[in-house]
Design a protein around this nucleic acid. Structure first.
Length: 580
DNA sequence: CTTCCTTTGAAGAAA
DNA sequence: TTTCTTCAAAGGAAG
């Protein structure tokens, strides 16, 4: 890691270890999956039953089928694609999604880094999309190649960073965006490119990080075009369109707006407007500050610090509370999973009709596990970059600063906490959740994780953070640890992952008995599992749609494939233990 | 109106 | 060094 950046230095970089992850073999599989991914979905939907079969076949099926899991992303990407097709076209050659092989983590990667992944040079489709997504509005000159990506522009942006978000101003949605914004500004373009970035706080000029950041920066046209990521904020937009989701629910609109706004602001000051496309929505004149910065409901305000006055001015529609906290509440950078959630939530909601975040999150958690390593790697990489940016922006910030800001977190512990309430609640929820999940995710589970996820060493490698994956799982407190035994080695497949899956279960237990609403996964299980479904039954299907039934995404398949393994381990977690 | 729920991951705190 | 706890997002549900 150290080697990486010469420039920046931050460190986070360490992560950069990045290892080359991915086995080729898997990639191949994935590829195949990709191809069929879409189909798979349909198929899956059509027959959950098949799943069981497939599962049974497990070994065989797995290979072929696993891949499908990845698809989901691809699909989403595709959707987004439409929206941004124009942009994409410029850069794209042609098949985003189609491209079978995944280079590795493509996106962010910048040549500078020397990351292994980059070696390919080719960006994964997803990566491309990512960029697009982030900066859809921006018009980037198609011509600009990757090289441009580093273009200087970002530099100015950086200034913004310091800005504090006001809760009011900021939309929930913005976060991603903001980050993106952050990226811009802080990210500092490659040294040569953007000289100007100063640390708001310190006033000291920062050295931009080279490549890493750059990708994020929307500014660089080239970059934008070239890189895409599944991340999502765009997705939501799509979702809206596609699904017509209520804005309030999702952040779709905002992100774009935010970006624009921020960008525009930046631009206004420094850049030529043309670069940025005007926000579609009108909203935004108020700029959104950094996503990370939020004024807690409480009133923290951005006091002062900050930042570019211009930004402030704009932004603050709301009167600053001033004083309150001296410090603005700076949010933690989003981790890989959170990024994934943001991106995918809208989709899941659209597919499932479920609205409850808890239920959706469960689904997302499963899907996360079902993602291929490459896909996860993307998010890990993004998360890593986010952390870098965050660290650059807020050098002195530490996670500890936010401790206690949230009222209190749950008691995870089992010991004292009164299980009662929880349990009750959870039970109820469980019911509800179950149905949806099934429908939506049938994927049952966790298995997926086993497959790709970091659990495997390789996987871990893949994501910088990855290590986290592996380690974290074990280490992770919550849940994982709790049930050590269970953990997993049952699965033959990936021990690591297993842990992951187990983790969920464990966590649930640990967290409180209550928690697990669990989702049963009907599917996979071959026989035994079938029982579980019963549990689900209670659930009101009202919410469900036929569509839901059909597995919306490839995940199902994946799940199915993995299912066998899952059964043993997974079900556990998924299934609600709560009832107990 | 506030907190919970739920997920994974990162990071800090505690043991 | 290992384990445990918080927080990050999100939005309905429950108190």
């Amino acid at each position: 890691m150290p080697q990486l950046n010469g420039g920046g230095g931050d460190d986070l970089g360490a992560n950069d270890e990045m290892i080359s992850f991915k086995d080729e073999g898997e990639q191949e599989e994935k590829i195949s999956e990709n191809v069929s991914a879409e189909r798979d979905l349909d198929d899956v939907k059509s027959s959950l039953v098949n799943e069981s079969e497939n599962n049974s076949s497990s070994s065989d099926s797995e290979q072929t089928e696993r891949r499908p899991q990845t698809r989901p992303d691809s699909e989403s990407y595709e959707k987004t694609r439409d929206y941004f097709s124009e942009a994409l076209r410029r850069q794209q050659d042609g098949g985003f999604f189609k491209s079978p092989h995944y280079p590795g983590y493509p996106f962010l990667m910048i040549p500078d880094l020397t990351n292994p992944y980059l070696s390919n040079g080719s960006l994964s489709p997803s990566a491309r999309t990512y960029l697009q997504m982030k900066w859809p509005l921006l018009d980037v000159p198609g011509s600009a190649g990757l090289k441009d990506s580093r273009s200087p522009t970002p530099g100015h942006l950086s200034n913004k960073v310091p800005v504090v978000q006001h809760a009011h101003h900021v939309h929930p949605l913005t976060p991603l965006i903001t980050y993106s914004n952050e990226h811009f500004s802080p990210g500092t373009p490659p040294s040569h490119l953007s000289p100007e970035i100063l640390d708001p706080k310190t006033g000291i000029p920062r050295t931009p990080h080279p490549s890493e950041l750059s990708p994020y920066y929307p500014l660089s046209p080239g970059a934008v075009g070239s890189i895409a990521h599944p991340l999502s904020w765009l997705m939501p937009q799509q979702g809206q369109h596609m699904y017509s989701i209520p804005p309030g629910g999702f952040r779709h609109p905002y992100p774009a707006l935010a970006m624009n706004a921020s960008m525009s602001s930046l631009v206004s000051s420094r850049f030529s407007p043309h670069m940025v496309t005007p926000p579609p929505h009108s909203l935004h004149q108020t700029g959104i500050p950094h996503p990370a910065i939020v004024s807690p409901a409480i009133k923290q305000e951005p006091s002062s610090d900050n930042i570019s006055p211009s930004m402030h001015a704009r932004k603050s529609p709301v009167p600053p509370k001033k004083e309150e906290d001296k410090k603005p509440h700076i949010k933690k950078p989003l981790n890989a999973f959170m990024l994934y959630m943001k991106e995918m939530r809208a989709k899941v909601v659209a597919e499932c009709t479920l609205k409850e975040s808890a239920a959706i999150n469960q689904i997302l958690g499963r899907r996360w596990h079902s993602l291929s390593r490459e896909e996860q790697a993307k998010y890990y990489e993004l998360a890593r970059k986010e952390r870098q940016l965050h660290s650059q922006l807020y050098p002195g910030w530490s996670a500890r600063d936010n401790y206690g800001k949230r009222k209190k977190r749950k008691r995870e512990n089992k010991p004292d906490s009164k299980p009662e309430d929880f349990s009750i609640r959870s039970k109820k929820q469980c019911v509800q959740y179950l149905p949806s999940e099934k429908m939506c995710d049938s994927p049952a589970s966790s298995h997926g994780s086993m497959l790709d996820s970091p659990a495997t060493p390789s996987a871990a490698l893949a994501s910088p953070a990855a290590p986290a994956a592996t380690h974290s799982e074990q280490a992770q407190p919550l849940s994982l640890t709790t049930k050590p035994e269970g953990r997993m080695h049952h699965h033959f497949s990936l021990p690591g992952k297993a842990s992951g899956s187990t983790s969920s279960s464990s966590s649930s237990s640990s967290s409180s008995s209550s928690s697990q609403p669990s989702i049963s996964i009907p599917i996979g299980t071959s026989g035994s599992q079938s029982n579980t479904p019963i549990l689900t039954r209670p659930i009101p299907f009202t919410s469900l749609h036929p569509s839901m039934l059909s597995p919306p995404s490839p995940f199902h398949q994946a799940a199915l494939h993995s299912h066998h393994a899952l059964f043993q381990s997974q079900p556990l977690s998924l299934v609600t233990k709560p009832t107990e």
